[in-house]
């Protein structure tokens, strides 16, 4: 049976009280209150340094019910921004039922406005789309999400959409793009994606300076009730493999993820800026901007509709 002795209790960097959050990448630790102050300051710094939005602009916050998006909505509200949540019900069985309940409870408790889109009611629940089109789930899901983010922002007059992408998400995306030297994606990877058309909203990632551990610690310490479960479709996603590799590097060389991402934005991004793809035209179906006559989302819907009508009468879509 093992017996070990406790090490020296880490002290808060700011007030010297006993720490509860250790940030190995910063070689530092914080007590609860000082960590919450640090977290808010990192978000404010991200917003200001990248000119994401002002306090006069209404911000549409894409919330999934997970820790990152709810932590984002919480901190933006504390910092005094005008926020409205947007929840996309992907129709993924119990996972979506649970995440919707968490989002609704979060908004109700804080008296925050919440908009919702129900994929099943719109005829494209993700399990059905995947079953009918054989598209990878995350790809179909990403296409549908981006469409609805833009559509709802346009219809409700939001100039900016904020998403909960954190430092680990950006590092994993960057690693994938570098491994493939995908210049197009590299040139477009940024904490702020400026609209290439007047109908598009500005897309911003206020958590890009904060790791997944920090957003989880923030959500826990703020007692945010979020969905701990993984999306059933996430298993095997390449992003998880990239994150695993980056975590191992981080364990050996603390600070690696932050320098990888922040130095890319500071030094390399400018060199890679390419000519825009040319201003998009308009999708003949939904009227949103698109670089094709029919946008990716409407093409996906066409495929779902045609497969659905041509499917044998007895066929049914198995729930996840």
């Amino acid at each position: 049976m093992r017996t070990s002795r406790p090490g020296p209790k880490p002290r808060c960097k700011r007030c010297r009280a006993p720490a509860v959050v250790q940030l190995h990448s910063h070689h530092t630790a914080f007590c609860r209150d000082c960590f919450l102050f640090y977290f808010q300051r990192q978000v404010q710094r991200a917003i200001d340094s990248e000119h994401m939005f002002t306090r006069e602009e209404p911000v549409l916050v894409a919330v999934s019910g997970g820790k990152d998006s709810l932590a984002l909505w919480d901190v933006l509200q504390l910092l005094g921004y005008r926020t409205t949540g947007l929840y996309l019900n992907l129709g993924i069985g119990e996972y979506s039922t649970l995440s919707r309940a968490k989002v609704e409870a979060f908004a109700r408790e804080r008296n925050l406005p919440l908009l919702q889109v129900d994929f099943a009611a719109e005829g494209h629940a993700i399990p059905d789309v995947v079953a009918l089109t054989r598209r990878p789930a995350c790809s179909a899901c990403g296409t549908a999400k981006r469409h609805h983010f833009d559509r709802v922002a346009l219809e409700h007059g939001f100039p900016v959409v904020a998403t909960g992408h954190n430092l680990d998400d950006e590092a994993a995306r960057l690693l994938g793009n570098v491994l493939r030297w995908d210049m197009n994606y590299l040139a477009r990877q940024s904490p702020v994606l400026m609209p290439s058309h007047e109908k598009f909203a500005r897309k911003v990632k206020p958590l890009f300076r904060l790791s997944e551990y920090e957003t989880a610690a923030y959500a826990f310490l703020r007692k945010i009730d979020y969905v701990v479960d993984e999306c059933p479709n996430a298993a095997g996603a390449s992003q998880l493999l990239y994150k695993d590799v980056l975590q191992r590097l981080e364990a050996e060389m603390p600070g690696t993820k932050q320098s990888f991402v922040l130095e890319f934005y500071r030094r390399a991004r400018r060199l890679l800026f390419q000519e825009a793809l040319g201003a998009p035209t308009t999708c003949s179906r939904c009227g949103l901007p698109s670089h094709r006559p029919i946008c990716r989302f409407c093409s996906l819907l066409d495929e779902v509709t045609s497969k659905r009508t041509s499917a044998p009468p007895t066929s049914h879509t198995s729930p996840v």
């Binding site: 997970g66 997944e212 992003q239």
Partner: peptide, 10 residues
Amino acid sequence: IRNVISGGAA
């Protein structure tokens, strides 16, 4: 012990 690493599209 609560995992903090999430995957798939954010």
